[in-house]
Design a protein around this nucleic acid. Structure first.
Length: 281
DNA sequence: AATGTATTCAACCGCATATAC
DNA sequence: GGTATATGCGGTTGAATACAT
């Protein structure tokens, strides 16, 4: 069977965009805003696939894009984020204002990979080249200082992404911040979900903020994100405890004991530790 | 100047996930 | 709950450009 194509390929242009096409796309999005990419090409008078329009806008035409060379600070930030998140380019791009996932991905493949190789580090693992590959969680012994938890990058990313946030926005956070300091000193990821408090109808800016936070955590926790989204859409405070263990693959192991939690403001998650141990917070 | 090789990056493709019905 | 559709993401490609011979 298979899925129908995203657009009618027989009548769409491909390849490089012309100036006229760019102008049409910019004009349309200025007038109508982003979104509904499938219908946009027709509405804007473009013979392009919706996906192509979206990509062109996001990667090239968006007015907030920062063109030009990456700075040394950006380089280091990308390296640190990649060590923690892996090839999650969109998450990494979320921490670099004005940069796109595609741009960072290209830059990684053309520059940073070589830079790391020059330092004697494996670009994928961030460990010294020639060091033994991690057997389960034993990589801690060979990982560079501060990156000892990356033996299982996806799960580490998921856990790192989820910062405890039962407290309100004004309150500080202790454990997660210290974990970041420990993992990458000086790097403030703020890849966190918090429990936004809606005393009344939220302003647009707060909605955007919580939306972006939801985006950064989507990969880690679809179920909990759904819970957050549901509460957001209803503009209500959360009334259910959110368990992130299934997203991290622990529930079946019996490690999860979240069910039966009485605290309705709690989110539970694992903090990866050196040596493969995990602790429930 | 001509040719070959390496590098860059915009764009495409297919898959995964989210959402609507 | 199941299916169809839309959107987003990451991997890959290939044309354009830069550089070396």
């Amino acid at each position: 069977m298979g899925r129908s194509p995203c657009c009618e390929k027989a009548h769409t242009n491909k390849g490089a965009w012309t100036k006229e096409e760019d102008q049409r796309l910019i004009a349309y999005i200025r007038a109508h805003g982003e979104g509904c990419w499938r219908t946009l090409p027709k509405a804007a008078g473009l013979l392009r696939c919706g996906k192509s329009c979206r990509l062109r806008w996001i990667n090239y035409l968006r007015p907030d894009l920062k063109r030009g060379n990456f700075t040394e600070e950006e380089d280091e930030l990308i390296i640190k984020l990649h060590a923690m998140l892996g090839n999650k380019w969109s998450l990494i791009a979320g921490r670099l204002p004005g940069r796109t996932d595609n741009e960072i991905k290209n830059y990684w493949n053309t520059h940073i990979k070589r830079k790391l190789l020059g330092r004697g580090l494996d670009p994928q693992t961030h460990r010294p080249i020639g060091s033994r590959p991690a057997a389960s969680m034993g990589a801690a012994a060979v990982a560079p200082r501060g990156l000892s938890f990356i033996a299982d990058a996806p799960k580490a990313a998921a856990a790192t992404t989820v910062k405890m946030a039962a407290e309100s926005a004004e309150e500080g956070n202790g454990s997660a911040a210290s974990m970041e300091d420990e993992c990458s000193p000086g790097l403030n990821l703020e890849l966190s979900i918090s429990l936004p408090f809606y005393p009344s109808k939220p302003s647009s800016s707060s909605t955007e903020a919580s939306s972006s936070m939801t985006t950064t955590t989507a990969a880690a926790t679809s179920d909990s994100t759904a819970a957050v989204a549901a509460a957001e859409s209803a503009h209500k405070p959360y009334t259910q405890a959110i368990c992130l263990c299934p997203n991290l693959g622990f529930q079946r192991s019996g490690a999860c004991s979240c069910h039966g939690m009485s605290d309705p403001h709690a989110i539970r998650f694992f903090i990866p530790l050196q040596g493969g141990q995990h602790v429930l917070d």
